[in-house]
């Protein structure tokens, strides 16, 4: 299991209902079931991964974030998780809306397009940046909706989601030290991880400061 999956698991209260959107081989739902007693289910687009997960006894349904979240009833989960996928869905705003319709909380991670290396490479070369995280050429990338940490926060503000927790994470999934400043996190964080809740956040500064 990747390190950031451990960070995600740490955000989840034991014994709750969890939907992992894009559950892959099912390692997160397996971990949540075995170590946290969660009723964890997955939804995954790759049929090979679905078959592997079900063959390991994990409840995983074949489907995708863009088209299938709409079928779940309101508030059917305590947490809906979307790992490193938001940038690759067709309609990220709608996916977020669905996640917070069917779940009390949404946990979202995505690669941060605001990272200094990307900014510098675009500035110096004038070409689409190619880094360890963003490593497919523009014509082949599945990442059709890249965003920065600040872009994501702006969307949360616009759509009225509460940011309960946020952190910058490096590519290996280790938590990065940028905890105080959004701007520094946006410059140095390779990945971002958010715990969102329903309802309009009261004050941006107060909400975003980590305890």
């Amino acid at each position: 299991m990747r390190l950031d999956q451990r960070l995600i698991a740490g955000m989840i209260t034991p014994g709750t209902r969890v939907l992992d959107v894009g559950s892959g081989d099912g390692s997160l739902i397996d971990h949540l079931y075995r170590t946290r007693g969660c009723d964890a289910q997955g939804i995954e687009i790759d049929m090979g991964e679905v078959t592997r997960a079900v063959a390991h006894g994990l409840p995983v349904v074949h489907g995708d974030a863009d088209h299938d979240l709409a079928h779940y009833p309101d508030n059917s989960f305590d947490y809906v998780v979307l790992q490193r996928t938001l940038q690759a869905v067709e309609r990220p705003r709608e996916v977020l809306r669905q996640m917070l319709r069917i779940g009390e909380h949404a946990i979202v991670s995505f690669p941060n397009f605001g990272h200094w290396e990307l900014r510098l490479k675009l500035l110096l070369n004038g070409r689409m940046p190619n880094t360890a995280v963003w490593n497919t050429p523009w014509y082949a990338t599945p990442n059709i909706h890249p965003c920065t940490i600040r872009d994501f926060l702006a969307l949360c503000r616009e759509d009225g989601y509460r940011v309960h927790e946020w952190m910058a994470v490096d590519e290996e999934g280790e938590r990065a030290p940028w905890r105080r400043s959004i701007r520094l996190a946006n410059l140095f964080g390779e990945q971002a991880l958010f715990l969102l809740g329903k309802g309009r956040s009261a004050s941006r500064g107060a909400r975003l400061k980590r305890s």
């Binding site: 009723d39 289910q41 049929m47 679905v50 078959t51 079900v54 994990l58 409840p59 995983v60 349904v61 074949h62 489907g63 299938d68 079928h71 779940y72 009833p73 059917s76």
Partner: peptide, 18 residues
């Protein structure tokens, strides 16, 4: 069927065998 089970809030797995 799977989508109806999702709407019903059921715990459902689905697999298509190639």
């Amino acid at each position: 069927l799977v989508r109806a089970l999702m709407r019903a809030g059921a715990n459902v797995s689905s697999v298509e065998i190639e």
